[in-house]
Design a binder for these strands. Structure first.
Lengths: 359, 359
DNA sequence: GTGAAAGCGCTAACAG
DNA sequence: CTGTTAGCGCTTTCAC
């Protein structure tokens, strides 16, 4: 524990970095050198509470006073301690978010837009990347709750009972994204993955396909999409090739490998649904290598609308779900609740089939 | 402000979610229902301080006492308030990280591994995605410092003076990643982007190339790589085609477009360096569409070692820098400092040219 | 090995 | 519009 007490102090002396010389009587630099609200108050000749008001509720302070305080803040380089503020006000101005991955462009977009919207409103987002599978979600949520976030954003609806209990006990606003289902914890911004699969099957059927194949990652939502696709194709009397399941998260290589597995069964015109554009691109690439004509012999539809699918040759038909939109809607729901709203917001975001060269 | 006081309370009544029935005399649920350390202490018949010890320094508590306390913690569902703990101990157990993007696989990997390593050590990472360009870095760092992180991870070395000042004043451990240069703020885990460019030029030169082209994103590090490449190629008496500069962040489409621009100048065997595998894949795709033989007429080398480059056909030669390694080393540096170390750690991580089908 | 007192830096609540 | 008082929930410090 000895080290903890000198965290970050003597250190500068051991670096070669030249520090700028002290600029006049600026911020005090000593140990625990952080300027605090009382320092600012003293410098401005007001009470600490007035400094607090200048920062949090500026319109409740007379203009000349506020000016003096702001001047002192700038001069001293005061950075309010939100940890202390949060303890006192019981508002951490922090939102906890959990997503399975940021490698998936949709989640990356979602995170980016959610974070931006929350930041504009004065909140920070604490992001945790959980990986697929809900195994350690309880652990993650417990840790997150320890920081007393003002709200949570979680992915999916597949929540262990222990987590549901913790969330209920915390009584915090919760937004669940990505999935749509009947019993969200609280608020919801998602879509029905089964419907996505159905829509893809109908797209193919509408083009006269009678033979249907699928490549799906071993991730619960991906499997729901694939099942929706297969069920609908079957309902339409399609001939089903055996489903290929690949490891989650999806990769291009897995798509190539899966197409190679599919090869022997590909003896007539076939429609192929992939649970990700990465798999679809892999399948397309391998089809080209194997000399299978796309889309004439093999039609391919992916999911996710990755830039890759739009920019490759031929461009890949896919299903578009806007991560950015999900992120912004989720942020607006959270902010509304934080502002006192009580509406139990639930929204299905639309998805859209983007037809391109592979169908 | 009226809303603030009822944040999250009456809400459950308006949802359709069925809550599980109260399980015996479990955690108190009322307003501000959070169980606190005094509740646990009372339930276990000890002082709050003993509960704190059970959580933070278990070996300073007698086994039977600890057992009773742990039992009470579990029964009440106590989640320690780290905001209160942080205020008291002056250790937030939080690390602030700033990266320009998470769309780039290397940053995604870096963030993932850094976060994992820190989490294992009991820290959380608060991530901010800044976008390219240091314009708003001061604002971001100020906000982050308000949370009193125990350390910071920042990208690049291109730091506005105001930020350098804030960092120096805070006296916190800082690790800068991605770049290598003579005057880091504190610790460093990066590589020399110029050297990367030089290495690519030499790769091409070694294969007898005499004509050199480049496609680079308008991002400072990408430009350094491209300049290193062009300077070295020139030094080796290469004939230089005019550089193509594309918008940051890089896209596949930009690579295709850039190759189209390059087309008129491509009247003999040419080597093409791209500042990202996305640009390289775009160039490759467009070359295939245009019927330019790769690698015979046009050799291509990318940067980043994205899965895309490895899995497409032909696979793209590239420069590999392990984001995961950077993340883990950065975490180890921070943890060492947090444990009391004072060594001014600076490391250059190696990069490696991965030759594949496009050279 | 355990407890009591004091206080981290801020803001809610009330008073003036 | 501004100030005073009293905590927020925990940990530090010191006593036992």
């Amino acid at each position: 524990m000895t080290g903890d007490t000198i965290r970050g102090y003597a250190r500068r002396m051991t670096t070669t970095t030249k520090l700028p010389p002290d600029e006049g009587d600026a911020a005090p630099r000593g140990l625990r050198g952080a300027v605090k609200i009382t320092d600012v108050a003293a410098a401005a000749g007001v009470a600490p509470m007035t400094v607090s008001r200048v920062i949090n509720t500026p319109d409740r302070v007379a203009a000349p006073t506020a000016l003096r305080v702001r001047e002192a803040i700038a001069r001293l380089g005061y950075v309010p301690n939100m940890i202390a503020g949060g303890l006192s006000s019981r508002r951490s101005r922090m939102i906890a978010a959990v997503v399975p991955t940021i490698a998936h462009p949709m989640f990356a977009e979602m995170v980016l837009n959610f974070g931006e919207a929350m930041r504009e409103a004065g909140y920070q987002v604490m992001l945790t990347i959980s990986g697929y599978g809900p195994e350690n979600e309880a652990e993650i949520v417990r840790t997150l709750l320890g920081r007393r976030p003002d709200a949570l954003l979680l992915t999916g609806l597949d929540r262990p009972p222990e987590v549901r209990r913790m969330l209920a006990d915390s009584a915090l606003p919760v937004v669940e994204i990505w999935d749509a289902g009947p019993k969200p914890t609280d608020m919801l911004v998602g879509f029905d993955h089964n419907e996505v699969g159905v829509a893809v099957a109908r797209l193919f059927a509408g083009k006269g396909h009678t033979h249907f194949a699928s490549i799906g990652a071993a991730d619960s939502r991906a499997q729901v999409r694939i099942q929706g696709y297969r069920a609908e194709a079957e309902r339409l009397c399609g001939v089903m090739l055996p489903p290929i399941t690949t490891a989650a998260p999806s990769t291009i290589m897995a798509g190539r490998e899966a197409l190679r597995q599919l090869l022997p069964a590909l003896n007539r015109r076939t429609a192929l649904a992939c649970s990700s554009d990465l798999l679809a691109f892999g399948a397309l690439t391998e089809a080209q290598v194997q000399g299978i004509a796309v889309p004439d012999r093999l039609a391919i539809c992916g999911f996710g609308n990755f830039e890759l699918g739009a920019a490759c040759e031929p461009p890949i038909s896919t299903v578009n779900v806007e991560g950015a939109t999900i992120g912004r809607i989720a942020a607006s729901f959270v902010l509304e609740r934080l502002a006192g709203g009580t509406t139990p917001r639930r929204t299905r975001v639309p998805f859209r089939i983007v037809e391109r060269g592979t169908t």
